[in-house]
């Protein structure tokens, strides 16, 4: 059975009457890595939280791997891996205990869990901190432990909120390699402020401004456009981010 990885339709959410996301609609297909850009407060985290199911939006419909998040939130969460903006790790647990807990809640145990943990440990280079408590780990390791926890169940949909925040350049490269390795059978949506990151791994870019989508374009098209206009992709994205919400550019 095939279906869209992420489908967001008419998403709205306000905080104390101030709209954070206002009528947002977009889709992310399997195999796509979509960069989610926008200034602080543009609505990126609110959107990711609504898709992950950690926030109940005021209005709108969200489907994750074909499952409606409002109708069957638990089934939707089994298909989603979410790395929050803040690690969301329990400080007192060891890295290994955190990963085992996430796996167990997702129904993984025994050899399947061990195999998966071994794979993630190797890819994210977590070996040195597996036995350490989270509070004793550096920011970079904490980020990687949280990423491993988000990927422990090999989710179909991966949501990453500023995943490389706190990673050094080598770790960032390792993260990109991992993302490219897992992406072919997943829909990946990640928010970032770093455009080079988007250019390095993304196939498509979404730009939010004041809760509205102001740019939805494939990176290859943006490169062609930048070449034609003798500017950079960054110039195009920055121009889009400053654009009024009514002037949306479709892919």
């Amino acid at each position: 059975m095939t279906h869209t990885g992420i489908a967001v339709e008419g998403l709205r959410h306000s905080y104390g009457g101030r709209p954070a996301v206002d009528g947002l609609s977009f889709t992310v297909q399997k195999g796509e890595i979509v960069g989610f850009l926008g200034a602080n407060g543009a609505g990126k985290t609110t959107t990711l939280r609504a898709i992950a199911g950690t926030l109940e939006p005021d209005a709108g419909r969200i489907q994750v791997a074909g499952v409606d998040t409002r109708r069957d939130p638990l089934a939707a969460r089994t298909k989603t891996g979410y790395l929050a903006e803040h690690d969301g790790l329990w400080d007192g647990m060891s890295a290994h205990a955190v990963l085992c807990f996430h796996g167990a809640v997702r129904g993984l145990e025994g050899a399947a869990l061990e195999q998966r943990l071994a794979w993630l440990t190797q890819r994210l280079e977590l070996e040195p901190v597996l036995g350490k408590r989270v509070r004793e780990c550096s920011l970079g390791f904490r980020r990687r432990i949280a990423l491993a926890a988000a990927l422990v169940h090999d989710p179909e949909v991966v949501l990453l909120d500023e995943p490389t925040h706190g990673l050094d350049p080598l770790q960032t490269r390792a993260f990109r390699r991992l993302l490219l390795e897992i992406a072919p059978d997943k829909a990946v949506l990640f928010s970032t402020h770093v455009l080079q990151e988007v250019e390095a791994v993304c196939t498509r870019v979404l730009v939010l401004q004041a809760g509205h989508l102001v740019l939805d374009a494939h990176l290859a098209d943006l490169r062609l456009q930048a070449h034609a206009q003798r500017c950079t992709v960054e110039d195009l994205v920055v121009t889009a981010a400053a654009r009024q919400p009514a002037q949306v550019v479709a892919p």
């Binding site: 791997a65 167990a104 997702r106």
Partner: peptide, 15 residues
């Protein structure tokens, strides 16, 4: 989209 065999959840009481 294929469903990974790892995607599931613990039973209600085990949760």
């Amino acid at each position: 989209m294929t469903t990974s065999s790892l995607q599931g959840r613990a039973s209600w009481w085990r949760g």
